Amino acid sequence: MDRRTMMAGAALSALAAPAVMVRTALAQSGTSMNINHAMPPETHRFKVGTFEVVVIKDGARQSGAPGETFGTDQKPETVSALLKQNFLPTDAFVNGFSPVLINTGSDVILFDTGMGEQGRANGMGRLSEGMMAAGYAPEDVSIVVLTHMHGDHIGGLMEKGKPAFANARYVTGQREYDFWVNPAREGTAAAGGQKGVLANVKPLAEKITFLGDAGGDVVSGIHGEAAFGHSPGHMIYRVESQGKQLILAADTANHFVLSLQRPDWEVKFDMDKAAAASTRKQVFDMVAADRVAFLGYHMPFPSVGYVEKLDTGYRFVPKSYQFDI
């Protein structure tokens, strides 16, 4: 055996040794090799002027036939044809949930709070875990903004019966809050949503700043605007720093193909379907004309992109390196 062969053999033995040692140790302890390699939640960081933006993936959920949620006023084959055209399956879709942190230098502002405790059994509710991975703790948050009060946006407000963001004040729309806490919701289709609001939002009311229908500032450089339809008081937020802009569109559009290419199509979870369609066209006409980026809570992670006007709606163009230059 020559020297080169001996060295190669020794190297292979050295590489194999740790694995042998691990197997031996596991065998001695009776532990299985079936290890679950849990990864931290996905996060994505970029700048809008001097503001740091961190998108956090609270989780994702697979659902059944897309046509049961999007294009509910269309024939199933019409919805399927558009999905096929865009290289998407026709029998299922995946919905992601993307809360956003914005560090302005003076405040750490969280927009929406994900599923919270109720989602963890199904792999969601990972906001606080993602924040920690990005270098933030829940107590760092100084303002929590609620775009609206559906369960996947307010579920993370409480943790074990206490406020999850101990040092925060809150901002949301007056119209949205008034709708959900109104006793008239009891016994209606909105009763389930109301229970979540009464449990998670109402206990925080003394710390909430309410925005009227005309909108208003959260802080300098972040302005709320009415975008009603998906919910009674749904709002979007315009972020601007050093001439750079980002629209936090929340649930104005919930699917990057079905809601954007066909904004007129009805969506199951839009509470006022005609108003939601009108709002979609108004908001995304503006986004397309101004060539400004938007962040949609349910867009493909990291949930940021642009839209190009099409005859029937808009084409989604994912963000790449625009904010890195």
Rank of each mutant, 00 (worst) to 15 (best):
A168T: 08
G156Q: 03
F323T: 14
M149V: 05
A92P: 13
Y177V: 01
N200H: 08
H230Y: 15
F87E: 15
D58K: 10
Q242F: 07
E266R: 13
K268P: 15
W180N: 02
N36H: 06
D311R: 00
S128R: 15
L82Q: 10
G224N: 04
A11G: 00
E308W: 14
Q282K: 11
D140Y: 07
K47M: 11
L204T: 06
P99E: 14
D213H: 09
Q245K: 14
D91I: 06
L310A: 12
K57S: 11
V292A: 01
T172D: 08
A16P: 14
F228M: 11
S106D: 15
V197R: 05
L146P: 12
A11P: 04
M286I: 10
L83G: 07
E52P: 11
L258Y: 05
F301G: 11
I208H: 05
P203Q: 10
A253E: 05
W180I: 08
R315V: 09
Y136T: 12
S63E: 14
R291N: 15
E206A: 12
G233Q: 03
L146Y: 08
A190P: 00
V48E: 11
V144P: 01
A214L: 12
R61V: 13
V197E: 00
P40I: 09
F97T: 05
L88W: 05
A38Q: 10
G59E: 05
P232G: 00
A249D: 09
T113K: 00
Q194M: 07
V283S: 00
L88V: 04
S231T: 15
R45C: 01
V283Y: 04
E129L: 13
G151I: 13
P66H: 06
G229K: 00
P232D: 04
N103K: 11
P76V: 06
L204M: 09
D2L: 12
S29N: 11
L101P: 03
T147M: 14
A250C: 10
A65W: 06
V20D: 08
P138V: 09
A164C: 03
K84L: 15
G71N: 10
A38F: 05
A81V: 00
A92Y: 14
V239R: 00
R120M: 04
K244D: 13
V141T: 04
G119F: 04
P183G: 06
F70N: 09
G192P: 09
T5K: 08
G119C: 02
F294E: 05
H230S: 14
D217N: 13
